[in-house]
Design a protein around this nucleic acid. Structure first.
Length: 210
DNA sequence: TGATGGATTACA
DNA sequence: GTAATCCATCAA
């Protein structure tokens, strides 16, 4: 019975996601997400707290139909539509009711590259899943993937532990992209030097300065 | 009910 | 630099 203490990587991932959002975000680096016949190795993520003092979080103002899945248990997919044309995907983390989540910002297509290229305009390998909306497009993720159980074997969107763990020495952190406030929070994590990580761009207001 | 701007991307 | 273009949120 001694080896029962040894956890499988999958249950370790389940525990990680059920914990605090920052370690969960860090731990998602190197994980693989599969959907629509395409597999992506995650290279860049961003953490978002729930109702607990994070104005940038979609759950900041409480539960709505759009963010409902964020308030459920960890390991489910929160998909949202933005800028009138793009889908972005998050992994729900923490305990039920906490509503924290991790945005999947970028990754490397490691399986089903042909399918990914069909869905994306660009055929440049590096750009197939470089950016949160591109990543979703490569995976074919849209509103139909909302609420998918990422750790269930029969789910349309699945998450699996890293094939090779990402060492701490390769993990970099900085402020979140496209977020106006909370620049002091370095809640974006990426694999340092990885070419599929998106370039940091300061948030630009769309209206001209007057 | 109308205004506003967004966890973005592609292109000039 | 700006257009594309739906939707959640907020003021009235």
């Amino acid at each position: 019975m001694g080896d029962r203490a040894r956890r499988t990587p999958l249950s370790a991932l389940r525990d990680l996601l059920a914990g605090p959002v920052l370690p969960a975000a860090r731990g998602l680096l190197g994980c693989e997400i599969s959907a629509g016949g395409v597999t992506v190795r995650i290279t860049e993520v961003e953490a978002y707290a729930g109702t607990d003092g994070d104005p940038a979080s979609h759950a900041y103002r409480g539960r709505t139909a759009r963010n409902a899945v964020m308030f459920g248990p960890a390991g489910f997919l929160y998909v949202y539509f933005t800028y009138g044309m793009h889908w972005c995907a998050n992994v729900v983390t923490g305990v039920e009711g906490e509503a924290s989540a991790v945005l999947l910002r970028a990754g490397l297509v490691v399986g089903g590259a042909d399918l990914a290229r069909e869905r994306r305009r660009s055929t440049v390998e590096r750009d197939l899943a470089r950016g949160p909306a591109r990543l979703c497009q490569a995976l074919g993720v849209d509103r139909t993937a909302y609420g998918a159980d990422l750790l269930a074997p029969d789910s349309p969107v699945r998450l699996s532990p890293p094939v090779t763990p990402v060492p701490d020495s390769l993990v970099a952190a900085g402020p979140r992209v496209g977020v106006t406030g909370a620049l002091d929070r370095e809640w974006r994590f990426w694999i340092d030097g990885d070419p599929t990580v998106s370039a940091y761009r300061r948030h630009v207001p769309r209206k001209r300065a007057q």
